[in-house]
């Protein structure tokens, strides 16, 4: 199985250049049955990443470009009266896919955002009194531009919690940039990429991740980390129990990718920033004083 994961990572790395850590996190997020928020400026390869993931993992892909006039029905689907049958028939929206890219999610109204987030959480859609289960595996990658742009509705803190991880890609290094410019179009490369995993294998991996051992010593470490966010002076809010569970799931997925049967502290450290940063609420408005995940890691000794 490790081999398949390695191949998948390799495939991704060929398309998104110079971002192995982010790609690994993305895969871990997927294996941990979480959703991913990518926060970044336009044009650094968010869409490409989503497309590559869909291709490599062989997932059915849908993309929704969020705009200010997007309605919940545009995502979830709508029932239309059909003359031929004389009945209403449900036309599923783009959410009914295995990998959904919600592009620029902060441009839509809060109502539409919350429709998406509810579907993400419940993994089902209720429309016209009928509940429809979303396909498995189901994975949402939402992208968000840095929120200080005009005409945007940044996701509220309570909803950020629905994303297992938040990452940003950032500019590529000079070396990766050069390779990017030299090689062919990414879209063309994508077309040639072969899937490394089947959806069934992915589901299997998700099951295996749940079984990765978290020893008492490791749980002590997790507890210490979570506790330290709760009594940190620079934080208004620490990590919730849900965040703690998410941290454990993410670390298990990471350990699985690393090919380990149990989680070690380094696995927790590897996913910590991505899982935690968007859940910490700084005590003061000023950016400078707010502690980051790195600060917290540095404070807490491994028991």
């Amino acid at each position: 199985m490790t081999l398949a994961i390695q191949q998948a990572l390799q495939g991704l790395n060929q398309i998104v250049l110079g971002k192995p850590q982010q790609l690994k996190l993305t895969l871990a997020c997927l294996i941990a049955r979480g959703h991913l928020l990518i926060e970044d400026i336009p044009g650094v390869g968010k869409t490409t990443l989503a497309l590559a993931l869909a291709k490599v993992l062989g997932l059915k892909f849908q993309r929704v470009q969020f705009t200010s006039d997007l309605l919940p029905a545009d995502i979830l689907g709508v029932s239309i009266y059909e003359q031929a049958s004389g009945a209403f028939r449900f036309h599923p929206g783009p959410i009914f896919a295995q990998l959904v890219l919600a592009d620029e999610v902060n441009r839509a109204s809060p109502k539409t955002q919350s429709a998406l987030l509810e579907a993400m959480e419940e993994r089902q859609v209720t429309a016209e009194g009928e509940t429809r289960v979303l396909p498995e595996p189901f994975f949402v990658i939402a992208t968000q531009n840095p929120s200080h742009q005009i005409g945007t509705f940044p996701l509220p803190e309570s909803q950020l919690d629905r994303f297992l991880m938040r990452i940003s890609l950032g500019y590529p290094s000079a070396e990766a940039e050069r390779a990017l410019l030299m090689e062919r179009e990414r879209r063309d490369l994508l077309a040639e990429t072969v899937p490394a995993l089947t959806p069934a294998q992915l589901l299997d991996l998700q099951e295996q991740a749940k079984a990765v051992r978290t020893s008492p010593a490791l749980l002590d470490y997790l507890v210490a980390l979570i506790q330290s966010t709760r009594n940190h002076q620079g934080l208004r809010q620490g990590l919730s129990p849900r965040a703690g569970l998410s941290l454990r799931r993410a670390a298990q997925a990471w350990a699985l990718i690393e090919g380990r049967s149990g989680v070690i502290p380094e696995d927790v450290q590897a996913v910590f920033a991505a899982v935690v940063n968007h859940r910490l609420v700084a005590a003061s408005e000023r950016e400078a004083g707010a502690p980051t995940a790195e600060d917290i890691l540095a404070r807490v000794a491994i028991p």
Binding site: I264, P265, E266, Q269, L297, A298, A301, I302
Partner: peptide, 8 residues
């Protein structure tokens, strides 16, 4: 060093 895990 304190935050350094055993593997690192």
């Amino acid at each position: 060093q304190p935050p350094e895990g055993p593997r690192d």
